[in-house]
Write a protein that binds this DNA or RNA. Sequence first.
DNA 1: AACCCATCTGCG
DNA 2: GCAGATGGGTTC
Length: 704
Amino acid sequence: MDLIAEQPALAGLAPRRRRRPPVEPLADDLPVAQVVLDRPVPHLDQVFDYAVPASMAASARPGVRVRVRLGRQDVDGFCVGRLPASEHDLIPLRRVVSEEVVLTPEVLELARAVARRWVGTLPDVLRLAVPPRHARVEADVAADRHTDDVAAGRAAPELPTEAPLWADYRGGPAFLRRLAEGQAPRAVWQALPGPTGHTWADSVAEAVGVAVAAGRGALVVAPSATELAALEHALVPVLPRWEPGTEGGWVRLSADDGPAQRYRAFLAVARGQASVVIGTRAAAFAPVADLGLAICWDDAHDLHAEPRAPYPHVRDVLALRSEQQGCALLVGGFIRSVAAQRWVAAGWAHPVVATREVVRRRTPRVTALTSVELAREGPAAAARLPGPAWRAARDALERGPVLVQVPRAGYLPAVACGMCRTLARCGACAGPLQIDAPGAAPACRWCGRVATDWCCPECNGVALRSVRVGSDRTAEELGRAFPGVPVKVSGAAPGVLVTVPDRPALVVATPGAEPTAAGGYAAALLLDAAVVTSRPALDVAEQALRSWMAAASLVRPADAGGVVLLVGDAAPVPSQALVRWDPAGLAERELAERAELSLPPAVHVAVVEGSRDAVSGLLARAGLPAAAQVVGPTPVQRTGDGPGEPSTSPLLIEPEGERQVRALVRTPWRWSADVTDGLAAAIAIRSARREAPVRVRMEPPEVW
DNA sequence: AACCCATCTGCG
DNA sequence: GCAGATGGGTTC
């Protein structure tokens, strides 16, 4: 500080000091700016002080983007505060990039907590939280600004004074009453299916309406654009969409909408013009003013897990936010995630579930057709579409459309040797072979090479048989089984259908691509159920039930003839949960099992990956609490379900130290902060010393 | 990434 | 004894 102030007097005499920027007078008031640098290296994850030139005295406000000199290079950052003085000799800010306040104190606090919880750096989290600046949008909005004072906010529609949809749920009215009173209740919601009449989105919109009526903002995070579209529709009677020049209303915040639209919506929120946000996962950080309610819909959906470091999960980001900002929290879906069950079990959140009787009235009749039950069908029991399923579909087609869920897309996504049943693989890269269309030659799923003259390496067989049937082939088979009935396919490749008309038709869909049916489906067939329950993953049961219930929730209630058939020998536990429509029961059971085995989320688990030396070095320096149990390190094995090391390349003999290993740190939740803080400190030290990098992830889903 | 500084190293 | 190399740490 002083150095700069005295510089003019010394400038001529000083023995050729390093190029100083031209000396500018500093701001009179609070001449120090605290800056968080946008650098990915952990040891730069701290607040740096810079001098504020008088010319930036007003614009260098906390929350704006700034550009500063760090050592030799110019770096971007955020101003996060102003101080009267600093302990350091300061150099001035280079410039204020934009006067727009894009990082509010609340979001900064949230980002700090997220960085801490997931052992990441603050800049990494801020890159998720604050969308990239779009200068043209900013210019447009700056032009609007002058009209703001003139433009009157549009008249708000009648806000609901009561919430009839939530009366169906035990705990629902209490949740909304507390929300309306400005409290911060937390709930885990098991949504009723809504093929006709009111849907989950209507319930969400109703809750948003209560928050808005209480004079507060709301935030709804959904997995994808499909759910956002449903929410937009449901919000129509509740709240208008925000328009430039108005106050209040909702905006949609999603990276899919493109940088310009996304930034425009973000600015509307940051400037307090829009009071409600609906969006996908990054929207969990949206700077909603006076946030009263945060909602995570379908929290078990894998899109809620951020794929970029430090891999935070929407459910938990919103949970942190509810604690920090004192807002209500509503997390739910058709199923109850095991993670949410932990909150319920700990009494941290209240369950919001319909009574048994209401559930019965609103859900279809579900039957699991196992091969045991089908024994009397004889050999036909093994058929992919056994007799009872075929008959149920035929009957249902008299009454309306029938949904057919198939776990895999394509035609024959996996084939095997017709003699010994060894999975057929590509001769070049060992990827699995598939057949794309009727009569097509088998081709590699990874490298695309066509396998002419395939010959089984085990038994020299040359004939292929199908081991997996995809949605295209299923549609073909159904077309033959039900002549005259239209067959539609919905999925990523042919295109996702949003809705189908209320007419008899077979609708074949892959999970997540199920269209809604205007009057609800008359039936749903969930085929190849064992495929979904045999994945070697910790969350198989949860994900299987999620996938099935998503489809079953589109079917009419049993009273209206709605039936669901689970076909294909699925694991009994999730099957029973579906038949009894008891997702909470499954979650309880799963959590108890994980507690028994010390698996997440019953315990806190950090996964540390890197070279053997790096992992052991990190763990040695992390100062782990006594309660922490380290498992491993063990070599990381290739997963084998994607293109891996191509075997065409020369075999690389990696030195032992270079091989990637993985260690788990398991700790009871009450010690989790000690583990994450210890790991973060050790990572910062390793980073400053240029030691080999280590990747740390919390409860990654695919490790188990 | 570029710099500073402390320590080491090779040579007279 | 000293120039140049090397390595670890800092960068407001």
